[in-house]
Structures are given as structure tokens and as C-alpha cells.
């Protein structure tokens, strides 16, 4: 995360801000999607599945945030958060219990 001498400082700062947003909000979206998807798919009693899903979602969030700052560009960081989040959200949608909005 050192400023690239080729690029301007303003550009570097925007890239950092973008990554921070990807980590916080993209990461939260990924964690929420993980929790929702696992909560409906884990083969356990409902309350157990929800609790396990939430425990794992925190791990995913923390690793996700760390990865956001390890990957090469801010764009990849956003993709790495939102891509899996969308896939997990679709899986949740497919597996959600009948009768739930």
C-alpha cells in the first residue's frame, strides 16, 4: 500500500478510500450473505444453523477485510467481496424456507 510513484497522490488516496469502503461495506455484504446462505443450507436444527452461520460469517468478514488490502487493485478488492456475496445471496434465495419473504 505504498504510493505508486507513477500515479498521483490523489489517485493513491482514492484507491485507499475505495479499498476501505470495499473492506467495510463489501465485507459486510459478504458476511451477511454468508450468514444468510449458511443459515438456510446447513443441515442442522434451525437455531443451530443460524448460530453456526453467524460464527463463520465473522471469520469470513475478517479474512475478507484482510484480503482486500492484500490483493493487487481496488477493483479486484470490490470484485472479491461482491462477487461471492452475490453468489451466496442467490444460493440463499434458492434455499430459503417457504413462507419467508
Amino acid at each position: 500500500m505504498k504510493p505508486d510513484p507513477g500515479a498521483g497522490l490523489a489517485r493513491y488516496r482514492w484507491a485507499v478510500a475505495s479499498r476501505v469502503a470495499a473492506a467495510m461495506f463489501g465485507g459486510y455484504a459478504l458476511a451477511s450473505a454468508t450468514a444468510a446462505c449458511l443459515a438456510v443450507w446447513l443441515p442442522m436444527a434451525r437455531v443451530d444453523a443460524v448460530v453456526t452461520a453467524m460464527l463463520l460469517a465473522f471469520v469470513v468478514y475478517a479474512i475478507g477485510v484482510t484480503w482486500v488490502f492484500a490483493t493487487r487493485t481496488a477493483w479486484r478488492a470490490w470484485g472479491g467481496m461482491l462477487g461471492p456475496a452475490v453468489v451466496l445471496a442467490v444460493l440463499f434465495w434458492a434455499g430459503r424456507p417457504a413462507g419467508l419473504a
Binding site: 458476511a31 451477511s32 450473505a33 450468514a35 444468510a36 446462505c37 449458511l38 443459515a39 438456510v40 434451525r46 444453523a49 443460524v50 448460530v51 452461520a53 453467524m54 460464527l55 460469517a57 465473522f58 471469520v59 475478517a62 440463499f92 430459503r96 424456507p97 413462507g99 419467508l100 419473504a101
Partner: peptide, 21 residues
Amino acid sequence: FSGLVIFMAMLLPAGISAAYD
């Protein structure tokens, strides 16, 4: 980690609303 888990219902309501009305 456990400090976050204590507030999991507040922090990640998505997990709950996914399975509960």
C-alpha cells in the same frame, strides 16, 4: 472474536432473518 460473537444477533441480522420470520 468472542466479543463480536456476543453481539452477533445485532451485528448480523441477515443470518437470523434468513431463517426466521
